[in-house]
Write a protein that binds this DNA or RNA. Structure first.
Length: 398
DNA sequence: AATTCGTGGCC
DNA sequence: TGGCCAAGAAT
């Protein structure tokens, strides 16, 4: 049974408008922090995952330090993104830009092109801004405390704590989705996320050891990724099962309790793929902020909430012999997009800002996945996302 | 505090 | 197949 101090009624309820300042309640865990981290770290020493940006516990004990640049880069990429998806991108980035100064010196178009396909493109913009701040104002060395790290673009609560703990041995409370799940099961927290975050953080702060805080953080995340999984957790194999209230009650899978989310609406629009005689495709750059900010696209209309028809060739960015060649669907986080795909062939004078991209250049363009779907529907031969240098030097043409 | 930001994999 | 989920941040 969950202890009553985790009753959702206590954390969610109506707020008093008068005197009592809304101070986070001081929850005390009944878990023995020393016993807990000892058991967890012993498991981690044997079962830790081997990842390209990591230093193993053995190497760590031998005095080897993780490279803050690689830790930072991996943490940015891993925000809301799976390890499997990140690996290839991490290799590409570190091969092309081995040090933070190298990344800082790169053109922003090159960074966006390398990031294309990974999603959440504000991360790439912030990544580049952060690299330039570190290279410029910090002499190429990352600040070493969570508080200072958090002041940098793209680095928030989680990432600042993770870098500080992993690269600089600060006993910061590292709370990501894995840790939220593990902790909510340990304490059988009934309050739904995201409201329960302060409570979870309070527990993690008490559990985090001053010795090996980085390994502790990574161990919690590895545990969440391999044992304490969202569905069918392998409690039998869990090194901290003796500490787990939810598992003891046989209902680990019931946690974490989450607030239910709203249904996603649908938006519609049209994309216009102009193809020249030599096979070049007309592309332009999207505005620097907002959805797919700074990324490339064939011209599209705005995406309205279910425009009832009224799209078609009349919405084209410039006159041409447009033919409707298909339709694509793409799911974003908060809406589903349906895009009509129109194509025009032959010599054309777009008369708008943009450039012609040759067939062999398309793979290296900063095209997000949804736009690659559009090109595919327009029967454009586009090899798998690759990385070319061509986007760095290309001038804007018309 | 609630929204706005992508994408791919999985059952 | 469709909802859920993944090392969240910014506003």
């Amino acid at each position: 049974m969950p202890r009553d101090r985790f009753d959702p009624a206590l954390s969610g309820g109506t707020k008093r408008s008068r005197c009592p300042p809304p101070r986070p309640p001081s929850f005390m865990t009944t878990i023995d922090p020393t016993a807990f981290s000892t058991a967890l770290l012993a498991w981690y020493d044997v079962h830790h995952r081997t990842l390209p940006w990591r230093v193993s516990p053995r190497e760590r004990a031998a005095g080897l330090r993780a490279d803050p640049y690689r830790v930072w880069l991996s943490e940015i990429m891993l925000q809301q993104t799976t390890v499997a998806a990140v690996k290839a991108y991490f290799e590409k980035f570190t091969l092309r830009w081995p040090r933070v100064e190298d990344l800082a010196a790169a053109p922003d178009t090159a960074v966006l092109a390398e990031w294309a396909g990974l999603g959440y493109y504000a991360r790439a913009r912030n990544l580049h801004a952060c690299a330039r701040m570190v290279a410029g104002e910090y002499s190429g060395r990352f600040p070493e405390t969570a508080a200072a790290l958090k002041a940098l673009p793209g680095i928030g609560d989680y990432t600042s704590a993770a870098i500080a703990a992993i690269a600089f041995d600060e006993p910061a409370a590292v709370v990501d989705g894995n840790v939220e799940r593990v902790t909510s099961r340990l304490e059988a927290i009934e309050a739904p996320l995201p409201g329960a975050k302060p409570l979870i953080r309070a527990v993690v702060e008490q559990l985090t050891p001053t010795e090996r805080p980085g390994d502790f953080a990574q161990a919690m995340m590895d545990l969440g990724a391999t044992i304490c999984t969202p569905t069918k957790p392998a409690c039998v194999l869990c090194p901290v099962r003796p500490f787990c209230t939810a598992s003891r009650a046989g209902e680990a899978e019931r946690y974490p309790v989450k607030q239910k989310k709203k249904a996603v609406p649908e938006r519609r629009g049209a994309a216009f793929v102009a193809v020249r005689g030599d096979g070049a495709v007309f592309l332009r750059r999207r505005p620097g902020t907002g959805m797919l900010g700074g990324m490339s696209e064939p011209p599209t209309t705005s995406w309205s909430a279910r425009s009832d028809g009224a799209l078609g060739a009349a919405a084209a960015p410039f006159p041409a012999e447009w033919r409707r060649v298909g339709e694509i669907e793409h799911g974003f986080t908060h809406f589903r997009l349906v895009l009509e795909v129109w194509r025009a062939d032959g010599e054309q004078r777009p008369g708008i800002e943009g450039w012609w991209s040759q067939p062999q250049e398309i793979a290296g363009e900063a095209l997000p996945t949804v736009m690659r779907k559009v090109l595919k529907a327009a029967k454009i031969v586009a090899p798998a996302p690759r990385n070319s240098q061509s986007t760095e030097t290309r001038k804007t043409a018309r």
